[in-house]
């Protein structure tokens, strides 16, 4: 071990010891910052931070199927889009926005279920390609039926909050708090779900399907459940994204979006639910930080993606957990 590594480890240990010793204080500071952020940052950054929560939610559509059940799903962008577009269509049909979000979520879940029913019979790269094809078909569908979907011009989405509320508190602040709460709810829900029998069943199926079947786990049923849940969470995120962003167009839901969503899961850690916030931060803020080198931004993004996969395969969440447990 080199002197540098020793020093690094020492600093690491000190740092984590300090963090452990002051858990409550640090927790309180984090909560305070999260609550006060809308009053501390300019509105462009507030928009990005709200988007971080959306990506944090979306990360679970990678964590659950890919990290736990071992299913390569590449249709998250399309599910996200189904949720977002159905929100707009439902509000156009006269549904109140809040109800529209719930119906859009359920509808996306149904779409995922109907796709998952035949698709989950396949596994590995086959499942990956079926879902990728579905993603492309969805984007194509949006472009080919402009009368219904607005085509490449897109659709504008109504706001979630009545003007009475936005008159008192700015809309972006409201969206920030709403998504903060929904994100916390999502983390708690998935934390409990993944640490329940359901999560263990999925991990068992991923490790050894034959063993899973032999101890009475209906693998097919669990795969379909995990597939459908991925659809549900993307649908909810989509239903919230539409009014928050105010505008939808097909390229927002293509394969690049899907990869961003999965990247949020991978960067945060595919087996650490809490990591999703770091995944969201990376996916949203890294491209923002790199904006000043506009031309080569995406090239650097590609390099970072590869380096991340090479050196932090467990994601930031996994890395933190490892330090924590030392």
């Amino acid at each position: 071990m080199s002197r540098f590594e020793m020093l690094e480890r020492m600093v690491d240990n000190r740092l984590f010891d300090t963090i452990k010793a002051h858990q409550t204080t640090i927790g309180a500071v984090v909560v305070a910052i999260a609550v006060l952020i809308p009053f501390l940052v300019p509105s462009a950054l507030l928009f990005d931070l709200t988007l971080v929560f959306i990506y944090g939610m979306l990360a679970f559509s990678a964590i659950l199927p890919i990290g736990y059940a071992g299913q390569l799903i590449l249709a998250q962008g399309a599910f996200f889009g189904v949720g977002a577009y159905s929100f707009v269509k439902l509000t156009e049909a006269g549904l109140p926005p809040v109800v529209a979000i719930l119906v859009a979520t359920v509808f996306t879940g149904v779409v995922a279920y109907l796709l998952g029913k035949p698709a989950t019979r396949a596994s590995g790269i086959y499942l990956g390609i079926i879902t990728l094809a579905f993603n492309e078909l969805f984007v194509n569908f949006l472009e080919l039926f402009p009368d219904f979907t607005g085509g490449s011009t897109g659709l504008s989405a109504p706001s979630l909050f009545p003007s009475v509320m936005t008159g008192m508190i700015p809309g972006d602040v409201l969206y920030y708090y709403l998504l903060l709460l929904v994100y916390i709810g999502t983390v708690v829900f998935f934390y409990r779900l993944l640490h329940s029998e359901f999560g263990w069943a999925l991990l068992t199926i991923k490790e050894d399907p034959v063993l899973a079947e032999s101890i009475g786990i209906d693998a097919q049923r669990y795969r379909l459940l995990s597939f459908t849940s991925a659809g549900l969470i993307c649908g909810l995120a989509g239903g919230l994204f539409a009014p928050f962003n105010g505008y939808l167009s097909p390229p927002m839901f293509d394969l690049h979006r899907t990869i961003d969503i999965i990247l949020a899961g991978v960067a945060g850690g595919l087996t650490t639910p809490i990591g999703s916030i770091f995944g969201g931060l990376i996916v949203v803020l890294v491209p923002e930080v790199l904006r000043f080198i506009a031309e080569i931004r995406l090239i650097i993004y590609g390099v970072l993606l590869i380096l991340l996969l090479m050196y932090l395969p467990e994601g930031i969440g996994g890395w933190l957990r490892e330090k924590w447990e030392q």
Binding site: I125, I259, L263, V266, L298, G302, L305, I306, L309, P313
Partner: peptide
């Protein structure tokens, strides 16, 4: 499988 799929996706972006 998963890691190389995404790594090669990174190569595509580059």
């Amino acid at each position: 499988l998963l890691l190389t799929f995404f790594a090669t996706f990174g190569i595509t972006i580059i």
